[in-house]
Design a protein around this nucleic acid. Structure first.
Lengths: 195, 195, 195, 195
DNA sequence: TTGTAATCGAGACGGTACGTCGCGTCTTAAG
DNA sequence: CTTAAGACGCGACGTACCGTCTCGATTACAA
């Protein structure tokens, strides 16, 4: 399949990403320099620059190499239970090393590198969101949700508070908090009587 | 009020922050260097470092100098209408120059500078959140919301999707989107029948 | 004699010079900064700049405060013996702490500060040279030296090799070396037969 | 001779030293900064620091590049005449631009950088001194000087007064002064009768 | 005895340069 | 043709001192 040449290249690519993860965990992704990665990996800087245009791009690939499979949704027929399982898993991934700090650093990079933001969206955020929307759509098609149920909005309401806590208040993400959001979304937050 | 010495200091502080805002708008906050701010402001670098420990801290103060009053909530008695007005204003502020790009850059900085994250929270995020919670509490006390209404969670559901869009998907924030979130929160998102 | 005002001033002057000597011995006169002297002496920088225009000038005064009396020549009637005593004493002073290193540093400063060079000459070098010339003149007047004896040149031949060794080759100055120079000057270096 | 890699390096080295000489003549070697040399030479500061550990070391190499051949002694059989020619040439070199001011600055640096002092000695002072001593030795071997003639001391007596005048009294060095020293050394300074 | 003028410690300020780091580009030699 | 190695121009970092300046507090003298 892959000939000898691309095997050599793949080896180098993999070694560089592995070094990025190691070094990032040791000294922090913010302080990570391409210079240091090259030195530690025994790679020339050229070899890195040939593959990735920026530190953000390298971080993104390194991140994705940690989660190649993605998080897949179960479909047991119970939409709330399935979302709960899935979001608990997502939170476990996002909030803990080695994925968590790297993910956070990457979002930091994305704020001043539009290309990183776009790539992050396209390759990680959107696929995850799509899976959530797809699972919700299935539930709606099965009549578990009303026909007017706004799939995209529901996804945003499920995700937004988590990112808010991860990036802004930087408090720990708990399963309990996820459950409260699910509750609020599917059983209502309580204003019904008053309205 | 302020004696001569602190007046001099205040003048310098103000000049540096003003230059930071100017230069940041011209070349982008990511490319902004303390060196360049010092040169443009006619200040020594020491004078900047004496006041702010990092670029992030300087950005934070400059940001806050743009919005010294904060965004205040109206209380017309109609909680949904009041929130709508308030959040529309917030979105207008957060998503547009000069505040928007600087705010975004600052959150980027916060991802790898815990002190910046803490200061940002303490001095901007938390006060705004507190105002929202306070307005919601007033509504609950007036019986417009059920006694079980989770104030903090509501605030997170109102804020989270906005930050998600601002920082992650980086799509434009519209008043219409705010309205959809408000609707979902206060009238339910639609699963009621199915449950 | 000195009124109260000048007493206060003299105290400060003396404290600054003493600190200069202390600090210079600790960290080396090359690394010495006026900033550090001021801090250590508990003096304002202004107080130093009011008295001395440059680090070199401060060093010079500090140096001279170590040797206020100067080196005085004995006159026992034996010119060679008197010179020997005197030059041995000079060498002991010039080549040893605390005078030596400071003197060396000062000559270093003098190479790029003409005013320091001039002041050093006027206040230290020339007076010493004059004493030597005066002692030689007395010997010539007493008939111990021929009427054609070149006083200035003799002084230069006695001093030059010492400074050469102190500043250029930076080898230790010994009494034995001084004796060899005196021998060469007064008994001839040995070419007589061949000429 | 030199391969391509060292040719590139040699070009940079040479350009930096040439700029050092130019700039030093324009603004004085004391005010010379590595920053300014780098800027004028179109070189990175790193490129300079990679080659020379200090300003003094750079000055030394620049100095030596001005006098790569060294001053060679004639040997006409007449030791005094040969020394005269040679020392006149040395004085002409040492006391005049471009060599003189740079040499003086370098000795200034040497007073607070032992490594510069050592290098200066090894690469300039000692070789010159050795040539003088060698020429004197040849004369002694040929019977022009007595067997007891102290070669090293003679060299010091010839050199010392010149350096004394160059560095300490900072009066101009003349050929006439050199002749007086030669006279004193080889015909005696005149005390003979009295002793 | 009380201004008033000089001096002081303290340290902020605009600068210049330091020596280091990392960027992204480049050149070379080895495979 | 790709690599490891690393030199290079560049720009910024954060620090150290420079010499000037303002600011009260502390003296000492003259009114």
């Amino acid at each position: 399949m892959t000939d000898k040449r691309s095997q050599r290249a793949a080896d180098r690519t993999e070694a560089i990403m592995r070094t990025t993860l190691e070094l990032g965990q040791e000294i922090g992704y913010a302080k990570l320099s391409i210079e240091a990665v090259a030195a530690r990996a025994g790679a020339g800087k050229h070899t890195i620059y040939r593959r990735w245009p920026s530190k953000g791009a390298l971080l993104l690939d390194s991140l994705l190499s940690l989660n190649e499979a993605g998080l897949d949704y179960p479909d047991t027929g119970d939409i709330v239970a399935d979302l709960r399982v899935q979001i608990h898993a997502a939170v476990d991934l996002l909030a803990r090393p080695p994925f968590g700090p790297l993910f956070q650093a990457l979002i930091g990079e994305a704020q001043h590198e539009p290309q990183v933001a776009a790539a992050l969206n396209e390759r990680f955020i959107a696929p995850q969101a799509d899976k959530t929307v797809a699972r919700l759509r299935a539930a709606r098609d099965q009549g578990q949700l009303s026909p007017q149920f706004d799939l995209e909005l529901a996804m945003a309401i499920l995700s937004g508070p988590l990112y808010f806590q991860l990036l802004i208040t930087q408090e720990p993400l708990t399963h309990e908090y996820v459950d409260r959001i699910l509750d609020a979304l599917f059983t209502g937050i309580g204003p019904t009587q008053a309205y």
